[in-house]
């Protein structure tokens, strides 16, 4: 009986890393988007740094999605194997 244990382990690791990475990026973007509250409970404005961070995180998420599409669509060449 041939069980490809290394491939199985690769699937497990890649799945968990990919899911955590995408969730973290989107979570980071959402954290940067929501303004912290001041001492009196009023929301402060979002700083420029947080806005830049938000859009960088969204951009990286979009890149991951496009990478997924590239993997998914058979017509696109896959020069290397994982």
């Amino acid at each position: 009986m041939e069980i490809k244990w290394m491939e199985l382990l690769s699937v497990v690791i890649v799945t968990i890393i990919a899911a955590v990475a995408i969730a973290s990026l989107l979570s980071l973007a959402n954290w940067a988007r929501t303004a912290p509250e001041g001492a009196d409970g009023v929301e402060l404005s979002v700083s420029t740094g947080r806005k830049v961070l938000e859009w960088v995180a969204i951009g990286l998420t979009a890149l991951v999605v496009l990478f997924g599409l590239w993997l998914l669509i058979p017509y696109f060449p896959k020069p290397w194997k994982f």
Binding site: A19, V20, A23, L26, L28, W31, T34
Partner: peptide, 17 residues
């Protein structure tokens, strides 16, 4: 993977804007 992604997602925002 879903468990971890969920935990991370719920820590992401201070409020549901």
């Amino acid at each position: 993977a879903s468990y971890l992604a969920t935990k991370i997602s719920y820590r992401g925002a201070h409020s549901a804007t």
